[in-house]
Write a protein that binds this DNA or RNA. Structure first.
Length: 593
RNA sequence: GCGGUCGUAGUCUAGCCUGGUUUAGGACAUCAGCCUGCCACGUUGACGACCCGGGUUCAAAUCCCGGCGACCGCACCA
């Protein structure tokens, strides 16, 4: 318990939160009966509900309010998808181990530092080449000058085969984003061929972390909320910008980070865009939304910041990245969301790999007149000249660049179509004027990506409070896993029956309710505070007389008295943030023991 | 993966060094009563543990080895 735990020197919030979480059923490490497995957690009843509530906040913010489309795709993904996306190449690291001191190093980093090999060069090398390069440059262990073991690749994606066929390699997705990109064409149609539009997916992702630690902060299986927002790079304006312009973003710039400065500077969204700190309006918009999301789950603005990623820290697909970080007691700043400008990288890669056309068509406001040279083979002349090869010749010419044909005919007096010599009189050169009404292009993407488990953790940590040696979880009311507790003051004289009635009334209204009649009333309040239940309804003898009850506030422990019949409406308003606790009834004088 | 520290009921912990004293002790939580007119009251009782495997020994929670897991540091974290 918190009371004893506090006197312990090793006490910190992380430990306390994890302990409470396990005890009260928010989450715990999975597979405990088999000794546990690192990087996997089970969310218990309260945790599962809290997590859903947080994820529903994301939905409310993006799906409901902005009309972002939500999809759900599979975790297991054919290998080609992640070959195209670049993950197969980038999600593994060549590592060497010093055979003397056993320290492990990234082989490519060693080559960059001691072998004067550029990072792009080092990245392209295979294991043999790396081994060779290490030897050639006589790279030794920087710690103890020992020799290295042969380099090995460590792939951080979970690999499997799809069906019984060894050749059908599949991976557990390390992000939900690719599930959106691969379905782009269909989604674009469903969005009725209009940009901009966004698609979100909240689901599990897998990363075979070398050493997952830190509880919920780094898991091997976790929930990610990836939002891919597609827009026309020539029309990059964000239509909701005015809603967030004045929102202040605390930003730690890459150039300051390189000077080892931790100084964030506060800019409004508007300024950040004007000064070019954030390059995309949509990205700035989503950063502002992310800040609001975190505030809504209980993290004050002063404990949030955005850091710009250094070039080598950025994901392979990103042209500008910011991490949203939240301050937690144990580890300092931890990432809760990433904001990447993915440009057209992913769609372009899938186009190349799959052959599917993922461009969208854009009509110009006014059609553009374009002059185009065309070559028309005159079959009447080609026929007699080439006999049965004439068809083939015509085909070659139609595949060739008309400009080149014209140029050759003009300069040399003939044109070589493969092995065939074409004379000017065998073709008709024309300049054709066409009205080009639009063009095809690959949309750009900005991606906000939230780690659901980390949001969950920070919500828990920020809700954690100690008041008079009692623990309470002060969740914002909109994410509280349980809405109201219902308590008969005593378990006799008809109070239980009355309480049961009220319980039924409120569950039918859709509230999540915890009914508790065991132990003293104080104990039940304490239990409820620890589960983060914002309101408690107590049924006492006056209830039987005048049909009123008391509502108790978790955070202030104050009580108001009100009519049972008003409860449903009052509670609905309270949980939608349209009524405050003190407005729900007549305040009762503080009751002490 | 490496090094250090550690692993006893739901939670926290005593015992381990120096093997037998233990039917493994306590606190809190939980459950069933009694009590109780608003903040972990009191009281009676109940439930409940030596991470897993092997070894040493007449005897292992205790000593040794291996595994798993946790925390810290190193490395890693697109």
């Amino acid at each position: 318990m918190a009371i004893e735990a506090k006197s312990d020197k090793s006490w910190d919030k992380f430990t306390a939160v994890n302990e409470l979480a396990r005890r009260r059923g928010f989450f715990w490490q999975s597979f405990e009966i088999y000794g546990g497995a690192g990087g996997f957690v089970t969310y218990g009843p309260l945790g599962a509900r809290l997590k859903q509530n947080i994820e529903n906040k994301i939905r409310e913010l993006f799906v409901t309010r902005l009309g972002i489309l939500e999809i759900e795709s599979s975790v297991i993904t054919p290998g080609r998808v992640f070959e195209a996306s670049g993950h197969v190449d980038h999600f593994k690291e060549p590592m060497v181990e010093c055979s003397n001191c056993k320290k492990r190093f990234r082989a490519d980093h060693l080559l960059e530092e001691y072998g004067k090999i550029s990072s792009s060069e080092a990245e392209k090398m295979n294991l043999k080449e790396i081994a060779g390069a290490l030897e050639k440059n006589s790279v030794k262990c920087p710690e103890c000058s020992g020799m290295f073991s042969p380099p090995q690749q460590f792939l951080t994606m979970f690999e499997t085969t799809i069906g019984p066929y060894a050749g059908a390699v599949g991976y557990g997705r390390p992000e939900a984003a690719q599930g959106i990109f691969v379905e782009f064409n269909r989604l674009y149609t469903i969005a009725r061929d209009k940009l901009p539009f966004g698609v979100i997916q909240i689901g599990h992702a897998l990363r075979n972390e070398i050493s997952p630690r830190q509880g919920l902060i780094r898991l091997r299986e976790f929930t990610i909320a990836d939002l891919e927002f597609f827009f026309d790079p020539e029309a990059p304006e964000c239509r909701y910008l005015d809603e967030v312009e004045e929102e202040v973003l605390p930003i730690l710039l890459a150039k300051n980070r390189q000077e080892r400065s931790e100084e964030t500077f506060e800019v409004s969204v508007k300024e950040a865009l004007q000064k070019g700190i954030v390059r995309s309006e949509w990205q700035a918009f989503f950063m502002a939304m992310a800040k609001r999301l975190l505030m809504e789950i209980g993290v004050p603005a002063k404990n949030q910041r955005f850091i710009e990623k250094l070039p080598w820290e950025k994901a392979h697909y990103s042209s500008q990245s910011f991490d949203q970080e939240v301050y937690v007691e144990r580890w300092g700043w931890i990432e809760v969301s990433g904001h990447a400008y993915r440009t057209d990288y992913d769609l372009d890669s899938h186009m190349k790999k799959s052959g599917a056309d993922m461009r969208v068509y854009k009509e110009f406001e006014t059609p553009v007149e374009e002059e185009q040279k065309t070559v028309k083979p005159l079959m009447a002349r080609l026929g007699p000249a080439f006999k049965k090869d004439a068809g083939k010749v015509a085909e070659i010419m139609q595949g060739a660049d008309p400009e080149e044909i014209a140029k050759s005919l003009a300069e040399k007096g003939y044109y070589m179509a493969g092995d065939y010599k074409i004379m000017p009189e065998q073709v008709e050169l024309k300049v054709q004027k066409t009205a080009v009404r639009g063009k095809r292009f690959v949309p750009h993407v900005v991606e906000p990506s939230f780690g659901s488990d980390r949001l969950f953790y920070v919500a828990l940590e920020y809700a954690y409070q100690v008041k008079d040696d009692r623990v309470l979880l002060s969740f914002p009311r909109s994410i509280a896993p349980t809405h109201v507790g219902i308590y008969p003051l005593l378990s006799k004289d008809g109070l239980v029956e009355k309480a049961t009635e009220i319980r039924k009334l409120l569950t039918q209204e859709g509230f999540t309710v915890e009914y508790d009649e065991t132990g003293s009333i104080g104990r039940r309040y304490a239990r409820a505070d620890e589960a983060g239940i914002p309101l408690g309804i107590t049924i006492d003898y006056d209830t039987l007389k005048d049909r009123t009850i008391t509502i108790r506030d978790r955070d202030s422990w104050q009580q108001v008295r009100t009519q049972i019949k008003d409860l449903p409406e009052l509670l609905h308003k309270y949980f939608r943030g349209k009524k405050e606790f003190m407005e729900m009834g007549r305040l009762l004088p503080a009751q002490g023991s």
